[in-house]
């Protein structure tokens, strides 16, 4: 009875109702994000001792991760592949977002956005397999090109290597890049573009001096949204990457599941997270400098 009164009183204050509102989400985040992260972090300082885990704190894993060239190579390749995926996705997404925002009549825009999300109606795995069918030795692309007489022998550089990973991931993440850029472009007051034309700028220079800087928040969001998950992707490299297309996440998975070395896997995961954070921060910093130079 007294507790009920207390809760009743608490609900009346703003702060309390705020806490009540966020607590389910906060609890969820703590259980499913913060706790696992802390565990991974702890694991990365332990070592695997055959079947048991040695819980004494050590930097041994980190030393191995840095001294063994295979890890560095995989990390670099992951950065390179993610970078290529991000660049191609964002560069290809921008014109689409621009077209929908500037050239589609307002009444049709939602339909276009809806159509853009259609690839998401099929499972990620099925889409990756589809790319295998398209890019394979006897795949759609090769048989079409052979049939048209454009090539004499099937192209092999498009499957089971890094190129295949880039193509597949760029397709998978396209909507993630299109949407934030579209939203940023939608927010641009069209009068600003007219003002720029009025002040003597051409279409092209207006784009460079007004549209692009104002769309930059959307581009930054797109870059981060594509870059951060792709660097940790392991399904696509496993399925279409072949031996040359494997990335750091595949190694992390191998450490956890095949080599039974969870601490090493955790160490690699922490390092990967650290590097992603670093790259993201550098990118955001560069962008801020670009925008300031516009002034």
């Amino acid at each position: 009875m007294r507790l009920a009164q207390k809760i009743g009183r608490m609900r009346r204050t703003d702060a309390a109702s705020g806490i009540l509102l966020v607590s389910p989400t906060a609890l969820y985040a703590i259980l499913l994000l913060a706790a696992p992260l802390a565990t991974i972090f702890a694991f990365s300082f332990w070592t695997q001792d055959y079947l048991t885990i040695d819980r004494s704190w050590t930097l041994a894993n980190y030393r191995t991760a840095i001294s063994e060239p295979i890890y560095g190579q995989l990390m670099l390749r992951s950065l390179w592949i993610s970078g290529a995926v991000t660049a191609s996705t964002v560069v290809l997404a921008f014109p689409i977002a621009y077209f929908v925002s500037f050239h589609v009549p307002p009444a049709r825009k939602s339909l276009w956005i809806f159509l853009i999300t259609i690839p998401f109606w099929t499972s990620y795995l099925i889409r990756v397999f589809l790319w295998k069918v398209i890019l394979g030795y006897n795949g759609v692309l090769n048989s079409t090109l052979l049939g048209l007489g454009i090539i004499d022998a099937p192209l092999t550089f498009i499957l089971y290597n890094a190129n295949a990973v880039v193509i597949t991931l760029a397709h998978a993440f396209a909507p993630f890049a299109i949407l934030p850029i579209f939203v940023a472009l939608e927010k641009i007051d069209r009068a600003l573009l007219e003002a720029s034309r009025d002040l003597g700028e051409t279409r092209v220079t207006t784009f460079l001096r007004v549209t692009l800087p104002l769309a930059m928040p959307g581009v930054v969001a797109a870059v981060l949204i594509v870059f951060i998950p792709t660097i940790g992707d392991y399904v696509t490299p496993r399925l279409v990457g072949g031996p040359d297309g494997l990335m750091i996440a595949n190694m992390i998975q191998t450490q956890f599941l095949q080599l039974n070395n969870a601490p090493m896997g955790a160490t690699l995961a922490v390092l990967a997270m650290f590097i992603v954070t670093l790259v993201a921060l550098i990118f955001v910093g560069l962008n801020r400098r670009f925008l300031r130079r516009q002034q």
């Binding site: 007051d189 009068a191 600003l192 003002a195 516009q294 002034q295």
Partner: peptide, 10 residues
């Protein structure tokens, strides 16, 4: 312009 169209990034 009626809305003044001041460039917000400058």
């Amino acid at each position: 312009f009626q809305s003044y169209a001041i460039f917000p990034h400058l």
